[in-house]
């Protein structure tokens, strides 16, 4: 169980967005990808679950191995199966146009995973796992958009967990939330890392310091430095990393 990126290059139109990325992501850890905006963090994340396909005029070269399978050259069944295996939590929560219950059940239904009572149990379990159960119990059939933003984000997390992923990608998952909700979501990630490998793009350095086990620093489409959190934060090797960490640019 691992994600390995080899010589990955991504172009959108004539722009070279990701330049020769080589990366092995550790298992059952929180990996934080940091770097100034526009450095390609989100593109890298989108490449891992092939959502990059929906970008127009995109060209991807190189390989990404997920559990030993090259996902860049796979198609059809393999892509949907890949996406099931890799959960995604976006910056802005994005509840589907259906009820709270149906949102969580959605993934199981489209993947033919569970039905009936079993499905119900899965939905409840995952709502509990993200701490929503007590808040929404009794109004499971109301539209998900009526929840607060913070609740929506946790709902999206529950939705991802319901399809039993192995990895979770989080793209600045807390930046659109109020501080209290952000804290809740952040704590959730801490509890989830025993079971899942989490790859998180974050803009806030302090968040990375708080939760990261492994850190990747990117700048203008390249990986400048990577390593265990301790090492990157306390003893960065590259000049750029030092400058970024000291707040010379952001």
């Amino acid at each position: 169980m691992s994600i390995e990126v080899k010589n990955l290059n991504v172009y959108i139109k004539d722009n070279h967005i990701l330049k020769n990325i080589n990366l092995t992501l550790p298992e059952k850890k929180i990996t934080c990808i940091i770097g100034p905006s526009g450095c390609g963090k989100s593109t890298l994340l989108k490449t891992l679950n092939r959502l990059i396909d929906s970008v127009e005029n995109v060209r991807v070269e190189g390989n990404v191995f997920v559990d030993g399978e090259d996902i860049i050259n796979s198609n059809g069944y393999q892509v949907t199966e890949l996406r099931r295996k890799i959960g995604l939590v976006n910056q802005r929560p994005c509840p589907l146009p259906m009820s709270i219950y149906a949102n969580v059940a959605y993934g199981c239904r489209i993947n033919n995973m569970y039905r009936g009572r079993k499905l119900h149990r899965v939905v409840c379990k995952n709502l509990e796992a993200v701490g929503l159960w007590n808040e929404v119990n009794g109004r499971l059939r109301t539209p998900a958009v009526r929840l607060s933003i913070g609740q929506q984000q946790r709902l999206c997390l529950a939705r991802s967990l319901a399809v039993e992923p192995e990895y979770i990608l989080a793209d600045e998952a807390t930046s659109a939330l109020d501080p209290i909700s952000a804290k809740k979501v952040e704590d959730l990630f801490m509890t989830l890392k025993d079971k899942y490998s989490i790859i998180m793009v974050t803009h806030t350095l302090r968040q990375a310091v708080r939760i990261a086990d492994y850190v990747v620093f990117m700048y203008l489409g390249e990986i400048i430095e990577e390593g265990p959190a301790d090492q990157i934060f306390n003893n960065p090797q590259q000049e750029l990393t030092k400058n970024y960490l000291s707040g010379a640019f952001s």
Partner: peptide
Amino acid sequence: MAKNKSKQYEE
């Protein structure tokens, strides 16, 4: 996951 192929047929 053979049963999961049905969604590919639908597609």
